[in-house]
Design a binder for these strands. Structure first.
Length: 553
RNA sequence: GCGCGAUUAGCUCAGCUGGAUAGAGCGCUGCCCUCCGGAGGCAGAGGUCGCAGGUUCGAAUCCUGCAUCGCGCGCCA
């Protein structure tokens, strides 16, 4: 619709140049926006104002010339010049109801587009270390990454979802040590459990299981061997749990990528070699450094420590090098906001490797504060008693959990009230939206029970959709595709959430004032057609967020 | 100290990348049940968009400075 209008304006502009009403010949980017105030029509263009300087005429004069040159066309019902020089366009109601046909025809595909042109994008998210269960913060990262990926897919990008497993390095050793110490305790030894070991109860539980299954075997092993074995065992075990938790959360990855694999295939050392050959690294104080300062970082970063061990950063360099070699146009990393200091250096790496730093985009996900009836839920990381994602999903359900995680922009800190999430009332945004969907379904069931025959499109008379609220609903439905595109291009799935809340509000309001199933058959048919469009769009949008659209609740 | 991010209604937050009278939810006040699910709806009050400058036809939005808050600044991961 917008494009058609843009075309019309472009033609009018050309006509003005041709008949010399306007002189500059400069064709600016025609901006069309949707005014906040409905009195200003359905669309508005600021074209006349932006041209004022080049034309050396007042915006209103330009606007008049443009409006004069505008072809008569059936889809515009009113064109006005207003304010300092806005041109406001009001569309004929009929063309808004055309969107209902589009929705009906496209069904689940309504809202999909090809603006991504098949560009390859990888979204890497969660990527929690396999040293403990996922907690609530990981959950938000999971919901965000998955929704970003979905929204990108809907916009025509080719998307891969990847989980990077940090299964190498110190943390696995620490995990092995933690398990070994707990195991010794379980076996009756008096050993101290240091602060820098993993404190959570799950470690102790595993240790008990191991003792039960394998007896005292690990006591007899060489300590370093025991640590390695237990670290590997524990890591695999925890990772399996993470997969289960994510599955229960409705998230599946296309690829699980192991850091250890990078070492096994010598890709870390290969990556280091690439850097050296490009002159991007140097030795100092017995360590190897990356010249990230050449690309905007604060200081250079260590790749290989003086003791010969590579850093996590070295793995990440190799990992991102490898990612881009897989042919992605853009790589998106979803990180906890506490890692924001890391962004600059990774972009420096990408830059140093000869790519546009914007090819790596980082979405930072802020903390989640867990509340219960407004009171903070204690989350002591010291004792390891954090709230796990699993617990929260079990308590409030997948849908509420995912929806609430996406309620705010990712970089905005989020309050998550467990009681609110469970409440079945208007305070709870997820129920509010799902309920709208269930209500439409309910209406459709009633229609069926009453024996309402659904007519073919040709037999429908949409002119009975004459109410302002009906037009408003149709207009909102028409905005869904661009909402998805905006969400994709800005990597901001919360825009879909806001869209949904508004659509649900409009629907509830309409429902409350008007009956769909009325005595007049033509009106009933037309309203059912409208309301089914609402249902489809609600379902499509919820689906993008990984939230179910229930038929009854 | 340096860097990053924030600052919008009593509270939690949007604000479509520079547009016209700044929006929503919660909370508050007052209404609406012979009605397809009241698990709802309607209305009202509530703002010098942190402060001060600048850019221009036009600024919550862009630039500069300041203030306050949060986070990050290991040869950890």
């Amino acid at each position: 619709m917008k494009d058609r209008l843009r075309q019309q304006i472009g033609d009018a502009l050309q006509a003005c140049f041709n008949n010399s009403t306007l002189h500059s010949g400069v064709v600016p980017d025609v901006q069309i926006e949707i005014p906040g105030n409905p009195d200003h029509g359905d669309f508005a263009s600021n074209l006349a104002m932006t041209m004022a300087r080049a034309e050396k005429k007042s915006p209103r004069q330009i606007a008049e010339a443009l409006v004069e040159a505008l072809d008569d066309c059936d889809f515009l019902s009113k064109v006005e010049i207003a304010g300092p020089g806005f041109i406001n366009f009001t569309l004929a109601p009929g063309c808004w109801y055309g969107v209902l046909d589009e929705i009906t025809v496209k069904g689940k595909d309504y809202g999909l587009s090809q603006v991504g042109k098949g560009q390859k994008i990888q979204v890497e998210f969660v990527s929690a270390n396999p040293t403990g269960p996922l907690h609530i913060g990981h959950g938000r990262g999971a919901a965000t990454g998955d929704a970003v990926a979905s929204v990108l897919q809907a916009a025509g990008y080719e998307v891969q979802r990847e989980y990077y497993i940090n299964d190498a390095g110190n943390q696995m050793r620490t995990l092995g040590l933690s398990l070994l110490l707990r195991y010794r305790q379980v076996c009756g030894e008096q050993v101290e459990f240091p602060d820098d070991c993993y404190q959570g109860d799950y470690i102790l539980d595993f240790a008990k299981e191991i003792q039960k299954a394998e007896g005292l075997r690990y006591l007899e092993l060489d300590e370093s061997e025991a640590i390695e074995l237990l670290g590997r065992f524990g890591g695999e075990r925890i990772l399996a749990g993470i997969r289960e938790d994510l599955e229960a959360f409705g998230i599946t990855f296309d690829n699980w990528y192991s850091e250890q694999g990078l070492f096994d295939r010598d890709e870390v050392s290969a990556g280091l070699k690439v850097l050296k050959e490009k002159g991007l690294s140097y030795e100092k104080d017995g360590a190897v450094w990356f010249r990230t300062t050449d690309f905007g970082d604060d200081k250079d970063r260590v790749l290989v420590r003086s003791n010969g061990e590579t850093t996590y950063f070295a793995s990440d360099v190799a990992y991102h090098l490898e990612k881009f070699s897989r042919g992605f146009d853009t790589v998106i990393d979803v990180w906890g906001a506490d890692h924001h200091g890391y962004v600059q250096r990774m972009k420096a790496v990408v830059n140093g490797l000869g790519r546009n730093p914007d090819d790596l985009q980082v979405i930072l996900v802020q903390l989640v504060s867990l509340l219960r009836e407004g009171e903070p839920v204690a989350m002591s990381t010291r004792s390891g008693e954090f709230v796990t994602l699993r617990e929260v999903v079990e308590e409030v359900g997948k849908d509420a959990c995912r929806f609430i995680f996406l309620l705010r922009r990712a970089d905005s800190q989020l309050d998550f009230d467990l009681e609110l999430a469970k409440r079945q009332s208007t305070d709870n945004p997820v129920y509010y939206v799902q309920y709208a969907h269930a209500r439409v379904c309910s209406i459709c069931r009633n229609a069926e029970e009453q024996g309402v025959q659904i007519l073919e499109r040709e037999a429908l008379d949409l002119s009975s959709l004459a109410l302002a609220e009906e037009l408003t609903l149709a207009k909102h439905l028409a905005r869904y595709p661009e909402t998805v595109i905006n969400a994709a291009q800005n990597r901001e799935p919360h825009r879909v959430v806001y869209f949904l809340q508004e659509l649900a509000a409009q629907f509830h309001s309409y429902y409350n004032r008007q009956r769909v199933l009325v005595d007049d058959p033509a009106t009933t048919q037309a309203r059912l057609y409208l309301v089914k469009g609402v249902r489809t769009v609600l379902a499509n949008a919820l689906n993008l967020l990984g939230v179910d659209a229930p038929e009854r609740m």
